[in-house]
C-alpha cells in the first residue's frame, strides 16, 4: 500500500496562453480511490489543468502522470484510460438513451460483445433501464446527468474527471449523484472533481483551492477548516480568495 503509485501526479504543471499564465507550476498527487476536489474561483485555471491531465492540451512546462502515463508522451493512451464528464454533457440529444451508450462504446473501441454487456450494466447501475428507449432530450436534467456519467464509465476508466458535474442540479439529485460517486471511489475509481457547491467539497477526501493559476491551499476538508478556524469550506474558500 505505501508504495502504490498515485493515480494522478502533477509536477510544476504549467500552461501559458501568450503572456497569460493559466496554470502556474501546480504540483499535487491523488491516490487511487481518492475523491479529490479541485476547487477555485471562475477563471482560476481549473479547466485548463483538467484538459492537460486528460491529454487534450499540451503543457507549456512541467509534467504529470495519469494512471502512470505521462501526459507529455502518452496523451493518446491516457484518453482510453480515463472518463470525463462536464456540466455540458456531451450527449446526443436526438439519440435514444441506449443509442448514446452504444455510440460512446464505439468511441472507446469496445468490442460488440463488451459494448452490449457494458451498456446493460450501465443501464442497471445508473437506474436508466426504464428510459433506455427514450429520446435523450426528453429526459430531465438529473437523468441526463446519470446518463452522462454512465457514458463516461463504459470503458471502466481508472480515473474519472468531473468538471462541474452538478451545475444547476437540485439538492436531492446532487446527493444521489455524490452517493454514486462515492460508490465508484470505494470500488477503486479515482475521482477528480471540480464544483462550485462548497457543501460538495465536504464530501471529498481532500481538496485543493486554486486562484490565479496557483494552488493556494490543499488538504482534508476538516483539517483546512481547523487550520483557518472556520466552520465551513465555503468560509475557507471565501477567506482565501478574497484575501488573495
Amino acid at each position: 500500500m505505501p508504495n502504490e503509485a498515485p493515480a494522478i501526479k502533477a509536477e510544476n504543471l504549467t500552461r501559458r496562453f501568450g503572456k497569460f499564465i493559466a496554470v502556474d507550476h501546480v504540483s499535487f498527487e491523488v491516490r487511487r480511490g481518492e475523491v479529490f476536489g479541485f476547487l477555485g474561483a471562475n477563471g482560476a485555471g481549473k479547466t485548463t489543468a483538467i484538459r492537460m491531465l486528460c491529454g487534450l492540451l499540451h503543457p507549456s512546462g512541467g509534467e504529470a502522470w495519469v494512471s502512470g502515463l505521462s501526459i507529455n508522451q502518452d496523451s493518446r493512451k491516457i484518453r482510453q484510460r480515463i472518463g470525463y464528464m462536464s456540466q455540458k454533457f456531451s450527449l446526443y440529444d436526438d439519440l435514444l438513451v441506449e443509442e448514446n451508450l452504444d455510440f460512446f462504446a464505439g468511441a472507446y473501441n469496445l468490442s460488440v460483445a463488451d459494448a452490449n454487456k457494458r451498456r446493460d450494466e450501465i443501464l442497471k447501475r445508473f437506474s436508466l433501464e426504464e428510459v433506455r428507449r427514450r429520446l435523450t432530450k426528453s429526459l430531465p436534467l438529473g437523468w441526463k446527468q446519470r446518463l452522462a456519467l454512465g457514458s463516461a464509465m463504459l470503458h471502466q476508466p481508472e480515473v474519472l474527471f468531473l468538471d462541474e458535474p452538478t451545475g444547476g442540479v437540485d439538492p436531492i439529485m446532487r446527493r444521489n449523484f455524490w452517493e454514486t460517486i462515492h460508490g465508484l471511489a470505494a470500488q477503486g475509481t479515482t475521482i477528480f472533481v471540480t464544483t462550485h457547491y462548497m457543501d460538495e467539497a465536504e464530501y471529498c477526501h481532500r481538496i485543493s483551492i486554486m486562484n490565479y493559476g496557483k494552488i493556494i491551499a490543499m488538504g482534508e476538508p476538516s483539517k483546512l477548516k481547523a487550520e483557518f478556524g472556520l466552520p465551513t469550506i465555503q468560509d475557507v474558500f471565501v477567506h482565501l480568495i478574497k484575501g488573495a
Binding site: A41, N42, A44, Q87, G167, G168, H196, Q234, F237, V238
Partner: peptide, 9 residues
C-alpha cells in the same frame, strides 16, 4: 449557476 462562491456573493 456555475459561478464560484465569491462571485455569487
Amino acid at each position: 449557476t456555475g459561478v464560484d462562491p465569491v462571485s455569487r456573493g
